[in-house]
Simulated scan of single mutants.
Amino acid sequence: MNWIQRKIYLYNVTFGLYMLDWWERYLFNTLVIVLMWFVLYNGSRYVTEFCKRWGWHIEPDWQNSVAGIHGS
């Protein structure tokens, strides 16, 4: 059993998926993936808004930002 197979086995045992049918496992894994996508997507939006609010802007032209010249 290689490393990936052990991690899949651990995931199935931890969440009790080994006792489900194939379609129930598929449904559960689909819901987990959708939930993770929502968390990551909204988390990234929150982080960008947080950075904008606190003034941590990323300058698109790094040479002008080093020289202290800010364009419009």
Rank of each mutant, 00 (worst) to 15 (best):
N42L: 12
S65H: 06
V47E: 08
P60C: 00
W62I: 01
E59V: 02
R6Q: 15
I8P: 08
G55R: 05
F15Q: 00
S72G: 06
W3Q: 15
R53K: 15
R25V: 06
G68V: 02
R25N: 01
W3D: 15
I69C: 00
G43C: 04
W23P: 03
L31S: 06
M1N: 14
W22H: 15
K7H: 05
H57P: 02
Q63M: 10
Y41W: 12
W37N: 05
G68A: 00
E49R: 11
H57F: 08
M19T: 15
Y46W: 11
A67W: 03
M1I: 13
Q63W: 07
G71N: 10
H57W: 09
L10G: 14
Y41F: 13
S44D: 12
L35I: 04
Q5D: 15
Y11Q: 07
Y11W: 11
M36L: 11
L17W: 03
L27V: 04
G71E: 10
N29K: 09
L27I: 01
R25W: 04
V47L: 13
W22M: 14
K52R: 11
V66R: 01
E24P: 09
V47F: 11
I33F: 04
F15N: 02
I58H: 01
Q63E: 12
F28N: 02
Y18M: 13
G43F: 04
M19P: 08
W37A: 08
H70C: 09
H70Y: 12
W23F: 14
R25F: 01
N12V: 09
T14W: 07
Y26P: 03
M1H: 14
K52V: 10
Q5G: 15
M1G: 15
S65Y: 07
Y11K: 06
I4E: 10
W22L: 14
L31H: 06
N12G: 05
L31E: 06
E49T: 07
G71V: 04
H70D: 07
G16V: 00
L10F: 13
K52A: 11
S44C: 11
F50H: 12
Y18H: 15
G68P: 03
W37Q: 03
V34Q: 02
R25S: 00
R6G: 14
Y26C: 07
W62R: 04
W37I: 10
M1T: 14
N29A: 02
W56R: 06
N29Q: 06
W3G: 09
D21A: 08
L20K: 01
M36H: 03
L31W: 12
L31N: 03
F15K: 02
